[in-house]
Write a protein that binds this DNA or RNA. Structure first.
Lengths: 350, 350
DNA sequence: CCAATTTACCAAAGCGCTTTGAAAAAAGCA
DNA sequence: TGCTTTTTTCAAAGCGCTTTGGTAAATTGG
């Protein structure tokens, strides 16, 4: 069933039917009712491709999911982010075009998406410290919003980010207040912008208290469960092991927890752990006493904000850039406690 | 830059340029070279919407991601599956259209996808035991492939599934061979087809050995980490706790592991755990001695197979249905060992 | 060397919609 | 009633591509 069939059926012109369906005023209300009715009865929906061709709007947002050939890693926050963004798209009549590419042909993929006219806007995932995609997309002149930022890029562009620096400074201070002095940082890959900022927060907290930053306690890797496990195992086996861990995601933190219990220690008592919690749906870490003390910021919520910002940008091309900082909430759970040394000292005092 | 611009620039007709670009034979090789060159130089790519309108093929595959409003759950295997499918799409020039909908408007979403002509084919995720989507898609006459099956649907349709029954029968037998007699099953939601089949495999293994099936040891829930933790905690606190767990995904198994260590027990010695491992990228459970004994089947690989099957189906409409069974590999890891009772008996014997 | 093929190119129609500009019908006004 | 204004409808152009049905140019064969 296409427009012609429908209009023939109704004895009306395509123009009138189209207008009736699209809510234009120059059509009698009784006619509109009839048209709507017939459209529903025959399950008519205008052909997307014809419609977008005619209007010049693709009504589609592009997401590029780079999958490294070597690591075979898929960002675990991706699904939740997409779920959030997708809600907004549905509400606004946009489609979501997902391009899976191996990371070395990523740039070509953006170029093609735009020159094919397949999308009206693009969302940039996982920005690097110095991300070439931002310059590329500006050059291509396509509206885009970055989930995160790119520290070394001077240009103005739209982004929605969590205040990573503040969050990590906060949790580090929290651990310091509990008497921890040797605090390990298990961070994401070093070239990721979020990881840099989190590292900066951690360092800032230590330096503010006049403490040495020990590079031997800072780790950058793909944030797998195994990464957390391996590092924690080797650290805990050292002579002077850290008493606390700051971990960039709940996934490696699960590995850390495993290492702690394998070492016969108790998390929250012998060793403290704080995490950044993206509020992934399958790892709920909430309730009145979450398993992990965490700075929490829902990545799904971020997806909603990024999507909305992009849609606004597409609707109002001249508008200024959208830059939005989300704050992470510090929620204290069962994974943290006073440093053993401090606890002993306090007990002695009694 | 569009076709007209490019052909004007070259002093050729749109026809010739189009044919040159699409590899048709009726164009001189030297002309084709010139055209290709110019296209590359000016970064020309044919407008997707115009092209698909003209050809009548959308060159797009639809995926519907239902997100339950109440649970706010996003299937954690989704990202890996998509990554696999996306590779195949890229290789074959297909786009991936992702529709995020809340689960009660799922049917409408499929209808619309088809009547809008937005997709050439659809992939069905997470089939229920009696899934209405299969009848719907057949009625709509759109090519589709199901990731999984739907037990109660008689009709012929294309699917790619893991042999869940066999896999779970196998791991249950494995536990029985180790002397375990009280084996708990932590399964997915009861209406999910895969969960039913896995349950059937578990039951079959027990019955084959003439053992009672204890419904108090079988659990159906959304497969979160918390689910595993809660159930395992309460079971281990019972008078006659199970000595082994069969768990439908690595995620709840992580919760089970946590419960075991919280109870002061050792996994692989006091309590055994076997899992179904989807080989999610952030929870690698491989190497020569994986953390969990598992029946493994890469969901990413499944994504590739499903996508390829659908593309073939679209290319050859008359072809018979594609039904493909993937077998899961049993890999023994460190999470299983002899049942404590059996071990004691054997020691006594010496 | 000229007719019959083959090769290389082109004009125009069509994909299904929106939108412009015009016309017909209805309503308002004197 | 006749004329103007407003409302309602329509025919046709256009979005950017592919593809059909040509025609002119080059090649072949007798």
């Amino acid at each position: 069933m296409n427009l012609k069939d429908l209009s023939d059926l109704l004895g009306l012109s395509q123009t009138t039917v189209s207008r009736a369906l699209n809510g234009y005023p120059e059509v009698r209300e009784s006619t509109r009712q009839k048209v709507m009715e017939a459209a529903r009865a025959h399950n008519y929906a205008p052909n997307t491709r014809a419609k977008t061709l005619a209007t010049g709007k693709a009504m589609t947002i592009g997401h590029v999911l780079p999958v490294s050939k070597k690591h075979e890693m898929v960002n675990p926050i991706f699904a939740d982010f997409i779920a959030g963004a997708g809600e907004i798209y549905s509400d606004n009549g946009f489609d979501l075009l997902l391009s899976v590419v191996d990371d070395d042909s990523e740039e070509a993929s953006y170029r093609k998406l735009v020159s094919r006219g397949a999308v009206d806007g693009i969302i940039v995932h996982g920005p690097k410290v110095n991300d070439s995609r931002i310059a590329l997309l500006r050059e291509l002149g396509v509206p885009f919003v970055v989930h995160g930022r790119s520290t070394e890029i001077e240009a103005d562009y739209s982004w929605v980010d969590v205040n990573n620096t503040r969050a990590f400074q906060r949790v580090t201070e929290f651990l310091l207040d509990l008497g921890h002095r040797r605090i390990a940082l298990l961070n994401g890959l070093a070239d990721m912008d979020f990881a840099t900022r989190r590292g900066a927060g951690y360092v800032a907290a230590l330096e503010e208290r006049g403490m040495q930053v020990d590079p031997a306690l800072m780790f950058h890797e793909e944030m797998t469960e195994n990464f957390g496990f391996e590092i924690a195992c080797s650290l805990l086996a050292q002579d002077n092991p850290p008493t606390a861990f700051v971990v960039s995601s709940i996934i490696p933190a699960i590995g850390v927890r495993r290492a702690i219990s394998d070492a016969g220690l108790e998390m929250g008592k012998d060793v403290s752990v704080v995490i950044h919690d993206d509020a992934l749906s399958y790892f709920s870490n909430d309730g009145d006493e979450p398993a992990f003390t965490a700075v929490r910021s829902s990545v799904r919520q971020a997806g909603r904000h990024v999507a909305q910002a992009l849609i606004n940008k597409i609707a109002t091309p001249g508008a200024p850039v959208h830059q939005e900082m989300l704050e992470a909430v510090l929620a204290v759970g069962r994974s943290t406690g006073q440093a053993p040394a401090l606890r002993q000292a306090l007990e002695q005092e009694k």
